[in-house]
Computed example of a mutant assay.
Amino acid sequence: MARARTWFLTGATHGLGREITVQLLRRGDRVAATGRDLGALAELADEYGDLLWTAPLDVTDRRAVREVVDRAFSELVSIDVVINNAGYGLFGAAEEFSDDQVDHQLATNLSGSIQVARAALPHLRAQGGGRIVQVSTYGGQAANAGASLYNAGKFGIEGFMEALAREVEPFGIGVTIVEPGGTGTGFRRNAILAAPMAAYDGTPAAAVRGLATGSRPSPGDPVKVASMMIAAAEADPAPLRVVLGSDSYRFVHEALVQRLAGVEGQKSSAAAADLDQPETPR
């Protein structure tokens, strides 16, 4: 029988984070669950007792991130897996966002995850290893009109985590980026839409305006997605990326094929920018 593990999650109170928390508790693992609304975990606390450790956390508060992560490692002794799940969707044309919306989206989806990882690293190194799991989306590989700011955060955090994986491999720390597709977790209903500008009516960016009210079902099963994320977090060696959902595979594959096609024809022109090589004396 596999040993019980200890997990640290941000954004554990709702959606995919809560589903992961429930599945881990049911199998007897310990979970350090954090989020802004701990009342949503009250029922689980009553049922699972000491298996569930909780702390309020807004990942945009850098001091709080350090304090909560340090306290979790101190009180739980060791943590096997840190899952960066906190985040939200902000959609609209780039010109439609307010400055505050730009700052808060990036502080949550990009900087927040970076700070959680940075806070956990000294502890993971000291204990001789562990895993960091970053919840991204196909939007971390495939950009779309109306999602420029959301894509900025997800593209950014994927770049950070990919580089981090190379930095921490010598310490036995693995990094896994998970790219789920659409799942029935309420993400669309909770998405924030920028105030629309008439100039964008009828343009590709305007398509996101129906996001919260759209009736198109999400193809992903949140129970399966959570289960597969847990399995990926325990896989050895750590997979760098895990694509979950047929829609995610389609969007990521198309984006990568198009990106490569745009580069492949430029080999000669790219080399033309190099310094001229001196002629070799005969």
Rank of each mutant, 00 (worst) to 15 (best):
A55S: 09
G28D: 15
A206D: 11
R36N: 05
D221K: 02
A40M: 01
L164F: 00
A119E: 08
E234R: 00
G153T: 06
E169K: 13
T34F: 05
I192S: 15
F91Y: 13
S246L: 13
D221R: 03
A45R: 15
P180W: 01
L90R: 12
S246R: 14
G140E: 13
I177M: 10
A199M: 05
P204A: 06
V225A: 13
E19K: 07
R166W: 01
A45K: 11
G174T: 05
E47H: 09
G140M: 14
P281G: 12
T34E: 08
A194N: 12
R131N: 05
D58Y: 00
P56W: 05
V223P: 02
A4E: 14
A40K: 11
A198D: 13
H123E: 10
I173F: 06
D236N: 09
R63P: 00
D236V: 09
E162P: 10
S248H: 07
Q127Y: 03
L121S: 11
A191I: 01
G181D: 07
W53C: 13
S268N: 02
A117I: 01
V68S: 06
S136T: 09
A93Y: 01
E264A: 11
Y48N: 08
A232G: 14
G156F: 01
P196R: 04
G210F: 02
A33V: 02
E162W: 03
G262D: 03
A86G: 05
M228N: 15
D37L: 12
D103R: 14
R188H: 10
